[in-house]
Amino acid sequence: MSATTRKAYSTVSEVRFGQVGMANLRLLHIDAKALEDELLERVSKAPQLLKCAALILDLGHLDKEIDTPTAKTLLDAIRHAGMLPVALAYGTPATEILAHSLDLPVLAGFREAYRYSAEVLNSLAKNDGVSPGAAVASPSEHTYTATRHHAQPVRSGQQLYARDTDLVVTAHVANGAEVIADGSIHVYGALRGRALAGAQGLASARIYSSEFRAELVSIAGCYRVFERLPSELEGQPVQCWLQGETLHVTKLER
């Protein structure tokens, strides 16, 4: 095919940032053989869950840094056990250099895209002739974490946390259950447990419930406990928001 052939499509790929479940392997001792045996056993016990599962290797709990050949034997051990290492977990600058030498990305603890430290970026740039800007496009400005939806009842003793985003629950939240979000919380159903919005301090976060019976509501750390619900709020559609230090809890008027 010549380079001038007209293509039937405008692009051949799309790049998206999303969340996927990944196993996180926290390494406690450097012992490739023992690691392989241990993982083989785990994989054989839960093959559906672990066989061929993508895995992030976390070296942050070792008491020393490891070199590239050692890391390679560890990665081989994991592969022999049937799991697929795809990245290193965020750690020290040494982890970043190691990851680079292994051709693996470094992933931060949760979904936020990881940013290399300037120091490492500069040294990598020197070695490879890539500019820091090209090495990692700054993802922070345009990332958007999709709202977390939950359609099952949140039961007593359960905790639901929507990190970096809003939480929408389309079922009830039981007494003794806890729903938490870094953004706002919407409960389309009875809210009988606890709701904590703006968990990382976002004061503009709000809590909405179509049937308010909460034990506690909190926004950005300002909370109100309800031992007995005010009768004008009980069972009503309610909105909670923060004004300065004051947490307002009012009926939603239609």
């Binding site: 559906q48 039961r155 007593s156 003793g157 003794g176």
Partner: peptide, 20 residues
Amino acid sequence: VRDSDRILGLLSSKTRHGER
């Protein structure tokens, strides 16, 4: 009833079906 609610939560998460 409260304890049963707790159990219902565990049935949906801490079981083989839940883990799958």
